[in-house]
Write a protein that binds this DNA or RNA. Structure first.
Length: 164
DNA sequence: CGCTTTTGACCTGCGC
DNA sequence: GCGCAGGTCAAAAGCG
């Protein structure tokens, strides 16, 4: 845990992250190889815990794959920063912060937009997507960073139960 | 022709 | 109890 383990960090305690996310490195994701991300810790607890993982990319075309064994990412993306986010709500979801001009990032799945809402503290609307495949309880919300509009925060909720 | 997008309305939870 | 914010639904339209 020296130079390559800059990603590894301790789990931040549930302090007051009232309106600001705790910028801590995630211990749930590990950078393996060149373009592959895998869950370093127990993926089960990763889903069960009320912890969201925030990943900052600088590329738009990022293919994400949420499998049982972990999360696999493809695409020519250079990692900027990885941080864990603790939510107040106990819900299994991952938040990915991506630097992109477009909110619609192709992650290999087909999404159906079912809502758009304006966030109070942000000048940009939030988009609500859901997996087009029936039986897939996966939801996805996409909104821009209120501080940096050039960043797109994609929050996945649930797990895909179908291939691709 | 099927499916996605769109936009407003509706519902629910929480705070005051 | 009311109001606000966030989230979801649904009808109509648009596009491939």
């Amino acid at each position: 845990m020296t130079d390559k383990n800059e990603i590894t960090a301790d789990s931040s305690s549930d302090s007051d992250f009232t309106n600001q996310w705790s910028i801590e490195l995630s211990e749930y994701l590990k950078f393996d190889g060149n373009n592959e991300w895998v869950v370093d810790d127990d993926p089960g607890s990763f889903v069960s815990e009320h912890v969201s993982t925030q990943v900052v990319y600088d590329q738009a075309n990022v293919v994400s794959d949420f499998g049982e064994g972990g999360i696999h990412f493809e695409g020519s993306s250079s990692t900027r920063e990885i941080s864990s986010v603790e939510e107040k709500k106990v819900r299994k979801k991952f938040s990915f912060k991506t630097k992109s001009e477009v909110e619609i990032l192709d992650d290999g799945y087909k999404w159906r937009k079912y809502g758009k809402k304006m966030v109070k503290n942000s000048p940009n609307p939030r988009h609500y997507y859901r997996c087009s495949v029936e039986g897939c309880p996966v939801k996805k919300t996409v909104d821009r960073d209120r501080d940096d509009s050039r960043y797109v925060i994609t929050t996945y909720e649930g797990t895909h139960t179908h291939p691709r």
